[in-house]
Design a protein around this nucleic acid. Structure first.
Lengths: 104, 104
DNA sequence: CTCATAAATAGACAATTAGCTAATTATCGA
DNA sequence: TCGATAATTAGCTAATTGTCTATTTATGAG
């Protein structure tokens, strides 16, 4: 739980998660959207991966990252529930929305 | 936003927020529930205050802290909304539940 | 095999963090 | 006014963080 909130405390990492909302993206593709070096981005990816918020998959020379929505959901709403908030049940039972609307 | 998540990334601070769920508590009262020094707790309170998650009020020799639910709510659900989640509208229109609602 | 490309690792550095003890400030009661 | 109590500030340390450049690893193309 701490590691998730820690990961979310950096604006670059939050933007990475937002970029992954609609489907996987490669490390380079993500990195090019930010004004920091690639090794720095690599470190950010590692923080997100260690927190369980993203998972990576190698494809050829590239590494693709994708969101782990359920982990994000559990942290956000798990904590919120402590304060009496509930989330609306408007998604699939897994809590994982389709990655990429065209994906099988 | 970053400062809120940063504040939430520490388990001691999350527990402080939970202790404040049901109403204000003094700094000493809060501190005595943890196994760290009072100055350390004071620093945690400052982080929570700077993030806007709590507000303080002096009463005699004591300082009482209370939750700022709306700030917590805005951070948690504001970010969640980016990912398509919505919270159930089951609280007052202000989003601020009564403090001490269940207190005997 | 060799070269170019994608990404991660290594190593360094300044800034921040969580923790401590000691000192300070503010308030109350006698 | 004096002494006790509540809380914060000051000053320190060790660990962690975000950033960089340089290097290494892995893969695909020729």
């Amino acid at each position: 739980m701490s590691s998730v909130f820690k990961a979310l405390s950096d604006p670059t990492r939050r933007r990475v998660l937002e970029m992954l909302r609609d489907g996987p993206k490669s490390a380079g593709e993500l990195a090019s959207a930010f004004d920091v070096s690639k090794p720095t981005m690599s470190a950010h990816f590692a923080v997100l991966r260690d927190a369980g918020l993203v998972a990576s998959e190698k494809d050829g020379k590239s590494v693709f990252y994708h969101l782990q929505m359920s982990v994000l959901e559990d942290a956000l709403f798990g904590f919120a529930q402590t304060f009496g908030w509930e989330r609306r049940e408007d998604r699939s039972a897994t809590g994982r929305p389709a990655l990429k609307e065209g994906n099988p």
